[in-house]
């Protein structure tokens, strides 16, 4: 039955833009959530057709510690992932934070200019190492 529905969906032509589905679909970018169950109301009324937009998922990113280098970390690291990836970590010694930054640059291709790497490593080591956690 469900599969039949999916097949039916697959055979339905793409509908023209509907008034209930504004061109700037809220699903495209994460949005602040103001609904108690966590799903934006607009998604509660999906439009029929073949399109399954990516869902909007709630963001909850704990604040980074205040300190020199915070802005650089927020700017460069947030390109690919929320800084929750940092605040989640156990206390890591400076050499581990250095290895993580190098992994992001070399293995993942993070575009961090060379001069910015040392301040980023220093910030992470100062605030997310064994001395402060």
């Amino acid at each position: 039955m469900i599969l039949a529905l999916l097949i039916a969906c697959a055979q339905t032509p793409t509908p023209a833009a509907s008034p209930a589905a504004p061109a700037a679909a809220p699903a495209a970018t994460p949005v602040a959530i103001a609904d108690p169950v966590g799903v934006p109301q607009v998604l509660a009324a999906p439009v029929a057709g073949t399109a399954f937009p990516a869902p909007a998922t709630p963001l909850h990113t704990p604040p980074l510690a205040e300190g020199d280098g915070k802005d650089k970390v927020a700017a460069y690291c947030s390109v690919c992932h929320a800084t929750t990836y940092i605040t989640m970590q156990p206390p890591l010694p400076p050499e581990k934070w250095k290895a993580e930054v190098e992994k992001m640059v070399n293995a993942y291709g993070a575009q961090v200019p060379e001069a910015e790497r040392a301040p980023i490593i220093a910030y992470l080591s100062a605030h997310y190492g064994p001395d402060r956690r």
């Binding site: 966590g38 709630p58 909850h60 990113t61 929320a82 929750t84 989640m88 064994p130 956690r133």
Partner: peptide
């Protein structure tokens, strides 16, 4: 720095589309 002694990770519960509240590790 010791092992996590809790059964689960320690993030908050967060509700996502089509999901019950689950323990968040990361949001993006």
């Amino acid at each position: 720095p010791g092992p996590n002694l809790w059964w689960s990770s320690v993030g908050p519960y967060v509700a996502h589309p089509q999901k019950l509240p689950l323990i968040q590790l990361t949001d993006r």
